[in-house]
Amino acid sequence: MALIEVEHLFFRYSRSNHWILEDINLQISSGEFVLLLGTTGSGKTTLCRTFNGLIPHFHRGVYQGVVRVAGFEVDKTETPKLAKYIGYVFQNPENMLFSLNVEREIAFSLENLAYPKDTIIQRVDEVLSLLNIEHLRHKAPYELSGGEQQLVAIASVLALKPKIIIFDEPTANLDPLTADYVLRLIKRLNTVFGITIILVEHRLELVMPLASRVIVIDNGKIVMDGPPDEIINNQLFYAIGINVPKIASLFNILNKRYKLGLKPTLNIYSAANELEGVFNDRD
């Protein structure tokens, strides 16, 4: 049984008269690192909200189809009850941090789910050391930098040890090096701890090589679904309006203009090797 199952999902917000999600069918298995791509307004955030129940419980609208997460039918289960299985890290960490103190922030979800005190203390210690933020334990959220805030937000979601974590543009406000750090951390959560990751991102140069699967949404429908190498070899990818990684884009243009038959790649070293070959050939 897949961890997330979506069958014939349709959704539109109450005040809208066109489907924001149209006939979505999808299965995500345990351990996958899914990159969710699409232009602004394509429906990717909406889709994420259907995974943890914010749709239909928090955002009302017309909802058809079935979404099953960790065995639970989402439209029959309240979001707080799903928090144990699926975590959601939002774009703006400022609005995810409620306490005046990092330690309490991390304990917050555990308190809500009535874990015993000993477990709470243990988990808080675990998570602080895992993310290397023990030194932030007693700090207040507004004292932290953007990157630190994002790490604390991730820590507080991690505390429940969910099977799945959704990251909605987690690096939007971060500078390139910090963004890199956070994305590599997310990758580690996947490879070392087996957490299933669903990541919505625009900065594909950093992220595409890390994913095991790429799903592209356009106008509420899934238009591409496969491993990154397959996706960049599909012409549709370059036509949709996503920020295509530059080397893939370069190869695509070179192929079109000079009929070179290069194989688009996301790896800088293979790209360099291929191009070098081309330069030498032309000698």
Partner: peptide, 22 residues
Amino acid sequence: SNLKLPQISELFTLLHEKNSHI
């Protein structure tokens, strides 16, 4: 400056190392 090279620059840095005409 705590930045990253643009991806194309990364590529050409590698290419230049292999072939200084690039």
